[in-house]
Design a protein around this nucleic acid. Structure first.
Lengths: 234, 234
DNA sequence: CGCAAGATTGAGGTCGTTCAAATAAAGTGG
DNA sequence: CCACTTTATTTGAACGACCTCAATCTTGCG
């Protein structure tokens, strides 16, 4: 689930904190975690989705936005970060969102390799908890993109693929939850859920057996395109 | 930010697992983390929002939904949890979401007190990182409720109050970001953002100085009601 | 079989969007 | 400092996706 993040012998030091602003500001002289101040102009990128997460940042002045995109350009701004906030901390190899300045902004950069290193000393128990929390965060972010940007049909396609993936990618997807639950999950009404499923069936992307709690995926590629916001060619 | 969570010597039994499901099943014999299997009927509640988070759970069979509500009953189902998933892990004193079974479901309960205990031994650095991640998760969940349930006016009210809170609750809120950013954050179009702000001004809940990047909150109570989904009495 | 709950389908309404234009603000160069 | 261009924001009118309300159909279960 979580991929191990091994820092290859990065010369890194231990931090010995005890600051009022939080430990981040107080690394030991000999083992600095923190780095330089960085100034960003309006709309300048701090870090990109997919880029190596070598640093994370604390906002000093100005503000940042983090966002994700659909293929056709629709954008979901996950959050804004104001002075004092910490951004880019995901304990993963890659950043999952793009961060940009909304105006003239100053941040302090911290090396983040120390996190995996530090937690390597931790109990397996703590690590698994952190991994589970990160998993929740990633799912939540995926869902922000869905709720903020996608149409009803795209939402349903996304949902079906997600359920399928979590059930070992079988073509037959079991939906243990009711239409009401699905609707409240996707920010739709049950009637719209029903109509969207019917429409996907009409388009031959899925098939619905008599048992309404089971759905067969007939055309994953097309469903994937729908879910990713690529306009359907039809 | 994070309050310490001390477990008072609860008599608890050790599990000796060695399941393929991850470390949770394999805590040290002397420091057992896990507990009993629990069976839930359809729609039965596993844990409630606000309740003490004494346990967290791993789904064995069936499925769970987690959700949050607005005052008038609108519901956002944050996520579904299928066999193998871990739920209720927030490293906080209280659960932030309600978890219920979507059908006949079996879970394994784990004591979660050990997390704070275990992390007490961790470096301040790791704890701050975990705290920042949890902060992100909470914000994301709040935002799911906003995107999934709220009307345009409610979204704007929520956004203004949130920005105000993060800027020391001043009545004058600075909005460093553009209307486009706000729109993409709230799942709206810039025109709708603009219209909603105008409408709030018309209702005397806010005031907009000439400088469009600044907004004065005139009636926080009414804004709060709007944000919480309490129908406006007017 | 008969009933209750859930799911689907249909018709009409609404909120937010789209497209377009007006207004305001912020630069730019003279 | 001012005319001019560019960009951001606000406002208006018409459209459309999804919602609401209501009826029908299906399924599960006593």
């Amino acid at each position: 689930m979580q991929t191990a993040y091994v820092t290859i012998a990065s010369p890194m030091t231990v931090i010995q904190p005890r600051l009022p602003v939080g430990p981040l500001a107080r690394s030991a002289p000999s083992a600095p975690v923190a780095g330089a101040t960085r100034r960003l102009g309006k709309d300048q990128e701090l870090c990109a989705e997919g880029a190596a997460a070598t640093f994370f940042y604390k906002v000093v002045s100005g503000g940042l936005r983090t966002y994700r995109l659909l293929e056709d350009g629709r954008r979901q701004v996950d959050a804004f970060y104001l002075p004092g906030d910490i951004v880019g901390l995901e304990a993963r190899e890659e950043h999952r969102v793009t961060a940009e300045a909304v105006c003239e902004t100053t941040v302090i950069a911290y090396r983040r390799c120390s996190f995996e290193a530090a937690s390597r000393g931790e109990s397996e128990f703590v690590r698994e908890i952190v991994a589970a929390i990160l998993e929740s965060l990633e799912r939540a972010r995926d869902h922000l993109l869905l709720l903020g940007c996608k149409s009803a049909l795209e939402k349903i396609a996304t949902f079906l693929l997600d359920m399928s993936r979590r059930e070992n990618d079988e073509d037959a997807v079991a939906l243990p939850m009711s239409r009401v639950d699905i609707a409240d999950h996707l920010g739709l009404r049950i009637e719209t859920v029903s109509r969207s499923l019917t429409e996907l069936g009409r388009r031959r992307l899925i098939e619905m057996p008599a048992d309404r709690r089971r759905i067969v995926l007939r055309n994953r590629a097309a469903l994937r395109d729908l879910a990713d916001g690529i306009e359907a060619v039809m």
